[in-house]
Amino acid sequence: MAVEINESNFEAEVLQADIPVLVDFWASWCGPCRSIAPILDQLSEEYRGKAKICKVNVDMNQSLARQYQVMSIPNLVFFKNGKKVDQVVGFTAKTELAKKLDALL
């Protein structure tokens, strides 16, 4: 299951993580966000211990959304060593997300 992240724990969970992190910027009213959620949960299980999958609700964490220039959702941002290294906007196939995660390992 993807970890819920907010403004108070983003730095500890994402920027200070010792493994790559995929952050899903989403909202409950977003259809594509709901469609990609099960894929992210599967990836969370498959990459357990190798990469972390996190979710940030943009409605409740607007400053994080602004900081990472999230204009459309779902917006998947990949972090490694505390730095943003990749980004995908919109529904994306599991195989494509897995390729991006594998490239960061």
Rank of each mutant, 00 (worst) to 15 (best):
V77I: 15
P74E: 10
N75P: 09
K84C: 13
D59H: 10
S72Q: 14
P32Q: 14
V21S: 08
K99V: 03
P20T: 08
D18V: 02
F79N: 02
V21D: 03
L22C: 09
I39E: 14
G49R: 11
V14P: 02
Y47F: 15
K80M: 10
C54Y: 00
Q42E: 14
K52E: 06
P74N: 04
S28C: 09
D24T: 11
Y47V: 02
V77Q: 05
L64N: 07
C30N: 06
V56M: 05
N57D: 15
E46L: 13
F79K: 02
C54D: 00
L43Y: 06
K52A: 12
E13W: 03
M71A: 12
P20R: 03
S35D: 11
Q62S: 11
V85Y: 03
A51L: 09
Q87D: 14
Y47R: 08
V88M: 10
L22K: 00
D41V: 02
V88N: 05
A37E: 14
V21H: 01
L15M: 11
L76E: 07
L76R: 04
L22R: 01
Q62I: 12
R34A: 07
L64S: 05
A65W: 01
V70R: 00
V70F: 08
L101Y: 11
V85W: 05
K84F: 10
V21A: 08
L40C: 12
D24R: 04
M60D: 15
P32C: 13
N75R: 01
P38A: 09
I73W: 10
N61W: 07
D41S: 15
V89D: 01
V58K: 05
A98Y: 06
Q69Y: 11
F91C: 08
E45R: 07
K52I: 01
G49F: 14
F10A: 07
Q62P: 02
A65L: 05
L15D: 06
G82Q: 13
C30V: 15
Q62E: 14
L101I: 08
W29H: 12
Q87V: 08
K100M: 02
E11I: 14
S28A: 15
K55H: 04
V14L: 03
S72H: 06
E46S: 11
W29S: 14
V85P: 15
L40E: 05
I73K: 08
I53A: 06
K84Q: 15
A12G: 03
F78A: 05
R66G: 01
V88F: 05
C33D: 07
K100A: 09
L22W: 00
F78C: 09
Q67F: 01
